[in-house]
Design a protein around this nucleic acid. Structure first.
Lengths: 225, 225
DNA sequence: CTCTCATTCAAACGTCCGTTTGAACTATGC
DNA sequence: GCATAGTTCAAACGGACGTTTGAATGAGAG
């Protein structure tokens, strides 16, 4: 089982662990799918950028869709884990209010994913795009990954907002989900004016998270029936 | 210049005006682009469904992208017109408040487009999808159509919310735009359970509009800094 | 009827797509 | 050494893509 690009086999003992072909494919797939969407990105574009053979995708994953599925699962895992952790923590201290729940949902999606170096925004854009891909088949693929936590949030939100109808709570939840995905995908940043030296594409992620949370808290607390 | 399918030339005086090839292409393009996205929809699928020759697209529009552009322009025109009309009407009576402005923005997008028969939801889904297509090129195409009114809304919202910073107002506006597009595209309706006999895909459009407006009004009034 | 011109049509263009194949390569176990 | 199994590779597969071509069609003008 060769690890490739280890440049010889002896040297490169500590230097750059060098990603495996599989990891490189997942990384590039995240980036390209996030930029051009599933249909708009070819396997050839991915494999060329990943310095891999065109057949590598089918060898490691089985198909283009399976590559996407693997990328979604890998990208969502830490977000889901963090959301569950926060929910556990909140519920251990009694009944959380709406703001705490919204924060526990949004921050893992923006904070955790917009930080950590240059790959953060790439992962965020990828997740946001997949969540609202034109193809329902692909949206379901995302939904399957996020469903598990969804039910817990809905139930907790309902308890935090007892005067709101179940339909209203569900309405608020999908709005929250949608706005998060939109900001993750950076689809709302206007085309012109490339940011000069800033951290990355757009504003400070922390500020964005706070703004979005404040926006949603107000809407949940007073905008539901 | 034959009008095709006028069945003879004399008969069919009042009966079914029968759409031209050009109109049929626009109608089907709206539907298919709205369902599968731009990249996910082939010209062959469109021309077959429109009972037109594959070459008809390039004859009438010049290219696939030009067909999309024409469809976007046609779909957006009445929405933009209605928004301008409402804005004129509001501003003639003094300074409108946030709720009035939000209503004047949302209702033409949902109401006017979700009503009018079975084509309403088709047009809505199309607009919503194009607004957040994975390809930036296509998003810009939508933005170009909606830009003209945008500046007026931003300015009016700023006057209605003098305590909010310009950045906050812009933030609220893109959130409003995003949520509207999401509901238009019906991307948030869960896959299962096909609605039995109901008007169409989902809830009562009027109720949706009211819920969304209430949600946004609360967020604008108390969720901006 | 004849000419004109917008429209439709079948067919083909070259290119790119996702996927498959079978041989080559490479590290490891014996 | 040899066998083995995991991985990479160039090449090709059939099919679908957007676009182009040039001839057929049909209605209206003279």
């Amino acid at each position: 089982m060769p690890e490739r690009a280890v440049a010889g086999g002896k040297e490169n003992s500590v230097e750059t662990p060098v990603e495996s072909t599989r990891e490189r494919l997942l990384n590039i797939a995240e980036q390209r799918f996030g930029e051009g969407g599933y249909e708009g990105t070819s396997l050839r574009a991915i494999t060329v950028a990943a310095a891999a053979n065109i057949a590598a995708v089918n060898y490691h994953f089985g198909s283009k869709e399976a590559l996407l599925r693997a990328a979604v699962a890998r990208a969502m895992a830490p977000v889901n884990t963090e959301r569950r952790r926060r929910l556990d923590q909140l519920e251990a201290k009694g009944e959380p209010n709406a703001e705490q729940l919204i924060r526990a949902f949004i921050e893992p999606g923006l904070d955790l994913v917009l930080r950590r170096g240059e790959r953060g925004p790439v992962v965020a854009r990828f997740i946001g795009r997949v969540a609202f891909d034109p193809s329902q088949r692909i949206r379901e693929l995302y939904a399957a990954e996020s469903d598990p936590v969804e039910a817990r949030y809905l139930a907790a939100l309902q308890r935090a907002l007892p005067s709101a109808s179940p339909e209203s709570v569900a309405f608020g939840y999908v709005n929250m989900l949608g706005l998060l995905a939109l900001h993750q995908s950076q689809a709302l940043t206007r085309p012109p004016g490339a940011e000069p030296p800033g951290i990355d594409g757009g504003e400070d992620p922390g500020k964005l998270a706070e703004d979005l949370i404040a926006f949603l808290v107000a809407a949940f607390d007073r905008g539901l029936r």
